[in-house]
């Protein structure tokens, strides 16, 4: 084993432990803010793993998009909905958690067996055959992945418009000049079930 390989294995080990640890923290810690910061840890260690896999552009994109955008967005959301909630403990939740844990572990065992049992058709070419991934990715985006690339723009546009529609604070529109138009104030025209039931009970009595 030469020096380069040793460094790779050591850094893989560190990154793997860091990733699994922070990921467990995300799902297990009681405080949501801690989870959000640990999520950034997961993203950064995954970005390190990408560098080990010779994917430098994706590693940069991972940090920029996930840590820079998604994680900050999640932190903002937590700040906006920052009510301290004391969850009422429901009976049977511990059993459910344990059962879920067992199922997830079983799934991991299954996936692990699959990973180890499958003869992956490893390529014989050296991974460094592409010396500049940015150029290679760009060529893909403008040749055989042109259609999904263009389509992603429409998707992002509509996600942006839609997120703004849902998150902006709307005034309930005042009833319009027309007498016949009744507006329900941004709610469904159908009455909720409880109200409907109340209405029919009144009519019975």
């Amino acid at each position: 084993m030469n020096l380069a390989e040793g460094v790779q294995i050591v850094s893989f080990g560190i990154l793997a432990v860091m990733m699994i640890g922070t990921a467990l923290g995300v799902v297990l810690l009681p405080k949501i803010v801690h989870s959000a910061f640990l999520l950034a840890g997961v993203f950064i260690s995954i970005s390190g793993l990408y560098i080990l896999l010779n994917a430098d552009f994706v590693a940069a994109a991972q940090i920029l998009v996930y840590v820079g955008a998604v994680n900050v967005l999640i932190l903002f959301a937590i700040m906006l909905v920052n009510k301290q909630e004391d969850y009422v403990e429901l009976p049977g939740r511990t059993i459910r958690k344990v059962a879920t844990g067992v199922v997830c572990f079983g799934l991991f065992a299954l996936l692990g067996t699959m990973v180890l049992a499958t003869p992956w058709s490893l390529s014989t070419t050296s991974p460094s055959v592409v010396d500049n991934t940015v150029i290679a990715l760009g060529e893909h985006f403008f040749s055989d992945y042109l259609l999904p690339f263009e389509l992603a723009s429409v998707l992002l546009l509509m996600a942006m418009v839609g997120a703004i529609i849902l998150a902006r604070r709307d005034l309930i529109p005042e009833s319009m000049a027309d007498e016949n138009t009744v507006t329900t104030g941004l709610t469904l025209p159908e009455r909720p079930r409880e109200l409907a039931r109340l209405g029919s009970e009144e009519q019975d009595s």
Partner: peptide, 15 residues
């Protein structure tokens, strides 16, 4: 994603 957006379109209705 556009289906999620349409589903939540009546945004003052908790349902």
């Amino acid at each position: 994603i556009s289906s999620y957006l349409m589903t939540g379109y009546m945004k003052r209705d908790p349902r």
